[in-house]
């Protein structure tokens, strides 16, 4: 709370007079504890109001004090029961038993609360561990799948019947490289096209097999793929790669031939 606002709004006076809400009182007390200057101002206000009260004091009649004493004496037992010296009470034993029971109940409540907190903490840890386990399992599945795919590919291209063929780029695209793995026994062809440069979005690489001078489509080649299966064509004499419109072409654009290898 702003000190200037406290002073301008007369909050110290209202605090002294008991006009503020409980929450406002707590705020003011906090400010008074933190600001010595404000505290001094409050003490001056307190002092002033007290002086005003004393200057305007009206002595009560004598019988008022007698009435007070009489009232205090008559409520003696009540006061003692709840006062701060319980040892004057005759029922010491019962009071002690109650105190012991209350202490035990308090300790029990305290330990219950502590155990509850530990239990909640354990639950949270358990949930967290379960989440981690699920995540690890999923990761493991993905890795296992990847290993299987990799193993299969390795076995595919490492087979003694597999013939690797390098498709080097010609003068049209000299930097391009692709490798075709041909297995005549299983009639399969896998192509590693990672060496092919990227193309515009409206173009794609396409692979062709030359059979008696006729170009037969083997499939589309994405530019940076690892191992792509393409169609095996019987009696192919050569493999050829051209650049075609995206989606492929029915016949090769000969001017766009970038690579060729004889089988």
């Amino acid at each position: 709370m702003d000190k200037k606002k406290i002073l301008e709004d007369g909050l110290l006076e209202q605090y002294l007079l008991g006009e503020l809400s409980h929450e406002q009182e707590i705020l003011i007390q906090k400010e008074l504890n933190q600001d010595d200057d404000l505290r001094n101002i409050f003490e001056e206000i307190e002092q002033e109001f007290e002086r005003i009260a004393f200057e305007n004091a009206i002595p009560p009649p004598e019988n008022a004090k007698k009435a007070l004493k009489s009232s205090v004496e008559s409520t003696k037992e009540n006061i003692q029961i709840r006062d701060i010296t319980p040892f004057k009470n005759r029922n010491i034993f019962k009071t002690d038993r109650f105190a012991v029971a209350a202490s035990l109940a308090f300790l029990f409540a305290l330990s219950s609360f502590w155990l509850y907190n530990r239990w909640q903490s354990s639950e949270e840890n358990l949930n967290s561990l379960q989440q981690q386990t699920i995540a690890l399992r999923e990761r493991l599945m993905i890795l296992e799948q990847n290993i299987e795919v990799t193993t299969q590919r390795y076995m595919t291209i490492n087979n003694r019947n597999v013939i690797p063929l390098l498709l080097k780029g010609n003068q049209t695209l000299p930097e391009s490289r692709a490798v075709a793995y041909v297995n005549h026994e299983t009639k399969s062809v896998l192509v590693n096209s990672q060496g092919l440069p990227p193309l515009e979005e409206d173009k794609t690489y396409q692979m062709w097999a030359d059979v008696d001078g006729v170009m037969i489509n083997m499939g589309i080649l994405p530019a940076d793929a690892d191992l792509i299966p393409v169609k095996y064509i019987d009696r192919a004499e050569s493999f050829n790669i051209t650049i075609e419109p995206a989606g492929g072409n029915d016949h090769p654009t000969v001017e766009n031939l970038i690579s060729n290898v004889l089988l």
């Binding site: 009260a53 305007n56 004091a57 009206i58 002595p59 009560p60 004090k65 007070l68 004493k69």
Partner: peptide
């Protein structure tokens, strides 16, 4: 009662 002697006048006022 001592507090009464000191403050009763101010409070009574």
């Amino acid at each position: 009662y001592l507090l009464y002697d000191k403050y009763s006048g101010a409070l009574y006022g």
